[in-house]
């Protein structure tokens, strides 16, 4: 079923703007601090709803390429792939392609930051 507008991202944004405006202005101290934290959390949700799906697909594709035949049955689940990757790094079975693994892990962390805190990343030289 398609929901009416606002979309989930638009609804989250509306709540975020309310907190950022009215609630921040009406609070102080700990409550204001937690309001700022909540505003940041809603920003994460907005970004996850909008750019998240594309990032997950890219991650899945890269991880499957590195893990190759080592993966069995969880090609469709990015989380399962990350679990397999973490285990393979630990047990040394990817030591013959550690450079590729590091590149992938760096790219994945970058994608997480694009949702969690894009401001943390250095400017993208390719952008």
């Amino acid at each position: 079923m398609t929901q009416d507008r606002p979309t989930a991202a638009e609804l989250v944004r509306a709540v975020r703007e309310f907190l950022e405006g009215d609630v921040m202005a009406a609070t102080e101290g700990r409550v204001q601090f937690h309001t700022r934290v909540a505003v940041n959390a809603l920003g994460m949700i907005e970004r996850e709803l909008t750019v998240g799906p594309g990032l997950v697909a890219a991650e899945r594709e890269r991880a499957a390429a590195i893990l190759g035949p080592d993966i069995s049955g969880h090609e469709d689940d990015a989380r399962e792939l990350e679990i397999a990757l973490a285990a393979a790094i630990r047990n040394g079975s990817l030591d013959d392609r550690l450079d590729a693994v590091r590149d992938h892990v760096r790219a994945t962390v970058r994608e997480k930051l694009l949702v969690a805190n894009p401001g943390y990343l250095p400017p993208d030289p390719s952008a």
Partner: peptide, 10 residues
């Protein structure tokens, strides 16, 4: 799972 931490632990 945190593959970056696994790289770090190694």
């Amino acid at each position: 799972p945190h593959p970056a931490f696994e790289l770090g632990l190694r």
